[in-house]
Design a binder for these strands. Structure first.
Lengths: 114, 114
DNA sequence: CATATCCATCGACGATTGTCGATGGCTCAG
DNA sequence: CTGAGCCATCGACAATCGTCGATGGATATG
């Protein structure tokens, strides 16, 4: 990321071009970022990442200081962007990071979760 | 990320523990994610990343189909989390990715922007 | 069956967000 | 000085978000 000099000459009312940024990429990536933009959801994702085994919703409800509907709501958002998979076992529902995460997403998480 | 087996036995009303996730990390990282959770801001960041030279606000206003106050508003958010630096030059204001981004943040962006 | 636990969904609420038009401060050209 | 262009800030608005209590379905126990 070498930083070039500022352009010296510029006429009023005349703007230069921007690099081409794919709108689909921006939309999709923003969706993923939005899913990760809440401390609670980030904590859940990091927990599943570090635990490397499925975690029961009841454990999140007990561990984080939030109501059960709120936990469910956050988990639904993570599921909505395909970050997690769920598995029902008896009366419990276990969540884990999706088995088929895109490699880029996996690298992103490994970068994110120290 | 080997996925272990589900716990077989579990008593009703008894929950296991969660991995320890630092609350400060969650809060801070969520803030960064929130800054990147909008397609417009993501496009701006990617533009500055790829251009490797400062970009004038007027170029964003011309290139993205949004009003000038909206562009300014988004840029202010990016500046708020320390992602960008600004430099006034005549009647123009140029923005670039912050010169002293945390290495982890830089790696994150390089991972994000294909 | 009756009861208790776990969980998702619904409906509601205040808070935050993305967007815009209007305004005013700078800065340069004439 | 005057006018015009660039930009940040303000005030407003609809939309979304995070949170909760209430409800109901599913499942296991007795």
């Amino acid at each position: 990321m070498a930083v070039k000099e500022l352009p010296m000459i510029r006429q009023r009312g005349v703007c230069c071009g921007l690099p081409d940024i794919d709108a689909g990429w921006a939309e999709g990536t923003a969706g993923l970022m939005k899913a990760l933009s809440d401390p609670t959801r980030l904590t859940m994702v990091a927990s599943m990442w570090k635990a490397e085994e499925p975690i029961c919703i009841c454990d999140f409800t007990a561990g984080l200081e939030l109501s059960q509907p709120t936990i469910s709501h956050h988990m639904a958002k993570l599921k909505g962007v395909g970050l997690v998979d769920s598995e029902k076992r008896g009366i419990w529902v276990y969540y884990r990071l999706s088995a088929d995460l895109a490699p880029a997403t996996r690298r992103l998480l490994s970068q994110l979760i120290a």
